[in-house]
Amino acid sequence: MPPLLLLLAVLVLAQSHGVASSGGGFYDPKRVTQISWRPRAFLYSGFLSHAECDHLVKLAKGRLEKSMVADNDSGKSVMSLVRTSSGTFLAKREDDIISGIEKRVAAWTFLPEENAESVQVLHYEVGQKYDAHFDYFTDKINLKRGGHRVATVLMYLTDVKQGGETVFPNAEGGHLQLKDETWSECARSGLAVKPRKGDALLFFSLHVNATTDPSSLHASCPVVEGEKWSATKWIHVRSFDNPPDVMTDLPCSDDNEMCPRWAAVGECFKNAKYMVGTKDTLGFCRKSCGVCDA
């Protein structure tokens, strides 16, 4: 079965029955809308309660620092005019509310909690923005821990009076989206999503065969009026909490000629122990799964 059809089958099953994790994470498929297939993007109405949104904002206030970006060559975090917000990371399982949100993210995305980074809360004031960028990496340093970011869950913690939209300039069919005068000029450059308190946007930065998806290019439009608070969960192709150190010092390779074909049908995620490996053992298709240095 083609990889896209495999993904569709899983999503259809989930939307028919709902999904619950063993730890109590649950999502309601009736609130999820597919907004794009290139990139794969889905909008969840009311993913967070207003109380959860307020809690995350309260935790972040007083901890905020200037937002950084990853340098394309060195991989180091550096300041840049392309990203002018402020933000902070909240520790995993910092409290029961954060723990519940993390379980819900895992249930919705079908990706393990250990593959995700901590929640990053961001604050945008008038004029602040994040120019178009990819969430996957181009440097080797960041790839060593968890591999590429395969998916992003962007949670909106406040309404924004005007501006602050998330826009995908390369999205297929973005020019067909109808926009009235309530959309900012930035949002008119592609497929866009308005920030609404409690909603969450899930999009994938990799295709299901683990190759990078250029259509996932996205930006946070400047806030025109009001302020914007959001929370981001980046999720990697393998464990971010317990990276298998043995992998990082060895050349990237496939040990089976079938690896590219298996990766194309989603085996990197379905059969990760064999394809990618564990903390103690190397997988047999690390190159095709895109989890090590090229």
Rank of each mutant, 00 (worst) to 15 (best):
A20N: 04
K161E: 15
A210F: 15
N271D: 12
G164N: 03
T152C: 05
S288F: 13
D28C: 13
L111K: 03
M155Q: 08
P112C: 10
L7A: 10
A187K: 05
P214V: 07
A264V: 01
S74I: 05
G146T: 09
R104C: 04
F110I: 00
L64P: 14
S230E: 04
C292A: 11
K61I: 11
L217I: 14
K66T: 15
H148C: 08
T182Q: 11
S45P: 01
T152S: 13
G174A: 07
I97S: 02
S67H: 09
S118I: 02
V153L: 13
D73P: 07
D135Q: 02
F204E: 05
T182R: 05
A106K: 09
A106V: 10
C292Y: 12
V153I: 14
E52Y: 06
R40G: 06
A171V: 09
L250W: 07
A294P: 15
M79A: 15
L8A: 07
P2E: 10
K129C: 06
P3D: 03
C285H: 09
V223E: 00
P243R: 02
S230Y: 07
R261Q: 11
I235H: 00
G146K: 05
E181K: 14
Y27T: 00
A272Y: 14
G18D: 03
V276N: 01
Y44K: 01
C259N: 03
D139M: 10
K161T: 12
G266D: 00
E267C: 11
A9R: 14
E172T: 13
V193T: 05
L7F: 12
Q162R: 15
K58P: 04
K30W: 04
E125A: 15
L282W: 05
L201G: 02
H175L: 13
V121Q: 02
L4N: 10
F110R: 08
A210Q: 12
L282G: 01
P195H: 00
A91R: 14
L201V: 10
A107K: 07
D73A: 13
W229L: 02
W37S: 02
P260G: 02
A263H: 10
R145P: 07
D28E: 10
D135R: 05
N271L: 08
A231T: 11
F137D: 03
T158A: 08
L6M: 11
S16L: 15
S21I: 01
P112Q: 04
F134C: 03
D280M: 04
D241R: 13
V126W: 02
F168T: 11
W229R: 03
E185N: 10
A151N: 00
E185A: 12
K144Y: 09
Y130E: 03
T211W: 09
S86Y: 11
A231E: 09
V69M: 15
P214Y: 10
L6S: 03
C268D: 01
P169T: 06
W234L: 14
K194G: 02
Y156S: 12
L6D: 01
M68F: 14
F168V: 11
V32Y: 05
D54Q: 07
K58N: 08
K279F: 12
L143A: 01
G277T: 09
P112R: 00
C268G: 12
C221W: 08
D131T: 14
A70W: 07
C289R: 06
S253T: 14
T212I: 13
D139C: 14
D28K: 08
S220C: 07
M247K: 03
W37V: 15
K144S: 06
